[in-house]
Amino acid sequence: MPEWSVAEPRTFALDDPVTSLKVRVVNGTVNVVGVAEGPARLEVSEVVGPPLIVTQRGSTLTVSYEDLPWKGFLKWFDRKGRDRSAVVSLAVPAGASVEVGVVGAEAVVSGIRGRTEVRGVTGDTTLVGLAGPVRAETVSGNVEAQSVAGELRYSSVSGDLTVVDGTGTSVRADSVTGDMVIDLDPADRGTDIRLTTVSGEIAIRLPHPTDARVEANTTSGAVSSAFDDLRVDGQWGSKSIKGTLGSGTGTLKATTVSGSIALLRRPESEPESASEPASGKVL
């Protein structure tokens, strides 16, 4: 089993096949990109503190520290982490599965067709052009997903979730205080969207036409809808948006206690910014 201790900048070209990648870094940056052909490549351009341990067991490549396990990763708040950081870039086959764990580090994962799982304590994560299933868990880091086609699962305490030009049909997310902005244009008009937050704001933009049974509820926030087929109810206290869009083959459920909920409609021509206001019924 090849193993390397990396205490200074170094580049690796890995001739053995890589079908699974596992990376855990404290502070700094992790960049992972999927490539169509060629061997996996690893570049460690900066290491501060203890060395990174690089191992390849079979077709699994691991880049981490000796004292940073994947299990219980989100509870890792060791003070020694303040004295370490690393900048790591990897190119792996696009079909590989990827696990990335970051404490205080930024992570970017792009072009992966296999399963992607990201866990972060702090530090933002960007996911671009992922075709396989995606799972993201954070404590306070934000997650931005661009052009993600696979099903997306997200869980956070206070991080925000932003989905831009999503082509997948399934998004399930929950948070305590984080906001959620979901912009979808799935190839299949049916959707499965289920969002839950306590005090975060929720904004969802869907194509028109779309097919979904809609049920959105807030206890004390405001609601608005750009779809005439949906009913906005509630004058004081609890408010809701309910109804059926198209044939109703999909599902859209959104729940928040004190946050607001907005359902926006994608124009049929050129897409507009998800942050632009939409006209419609407001309560």
Rank of each mutant, 00 (worst) to 15 (best):
S240Q: 10
A13V: 11
E66S: 12
R82D: 13
V44A: 08
L74I: 06
T210V: 12
E99F: 05
G259V: 05
V54I: 15
I202T: 06
A13Y: 04
A136F: 08
F73D: 07
V48T: 10
D15G: 07
R57E: 06
A13Q: 13
N27P: 07
G114W: 03
A40S: 13
L252F: 14
E268T: 11
P50H: 02
T177M: 05
G237T: 08
G38M: 07
R172D: 12
G38R: 00
K281E: 10
G243L: 09
N31Q: 13
R194S: 13
R113V: 01
S273H: 12
A136Y: 12
L184I: 01
T116W: 04
V257K: 14
A274R: 13
P2V: 00
A203C: 09
R194A: 14
V164M: 15
R41L: 03
D165K: 11
I193P: 09
P17T: 03
G234T: 03
M180K: 01
I53A: 06
S258Q: 10
E37R: 03
V139E: 15
V257C: 06
G259S: 08
G120N: 08
A36M: 03
P51S: 07
I202Q: 13
S147M: 08
P186S: 04
V223P: 09
F73K: 05
V33Q: 11
A262M: 05
G246Y: 13
G243W: 00
K239D: 10
S225K: 06
L42S: 04
R265N: 07
E37F: 01
R115S: 01
V88E: 14
T218W: 10
S170R: 13
G104A: 04
T218R: 05
D185C: 04
G101Q: 01
I112V: 11
S199L: 02
L152P: 11
P186F: 06
S260E: 14
S85T: 07
V163G: 15
T244W: 04
P2D: 00
S147F: 05
V35C: 00
V163A: 15
R41D: 14
S273E: 12
L61T: 00
G190C: 11
E137Q: 12
G123T: 02
V139P: 13
T62N: 02
N27F: 02
G243H: 08
G114R: 00
P207H: 03
A203Y: 10
M180G: 10
S175Y: 06
L52H: 07
G234W: 06
F227C: 06
T126C: 09
V103H: 06
P209E: 02
A216M: 09
S170A: 11
D67E: 07
D179W: 01
G58P: 10
A187E: 14
L283I: 01
K71F: 11
T167C: 03
G190V: 01
T125Q: 12
T62L: 00
L184R: 11
L74F: 06
R205W: 12
L161I: 08
V163W: 03
D16V: 01
G58T: 01
E268R: 15
T116D: 13
S5Y: 05
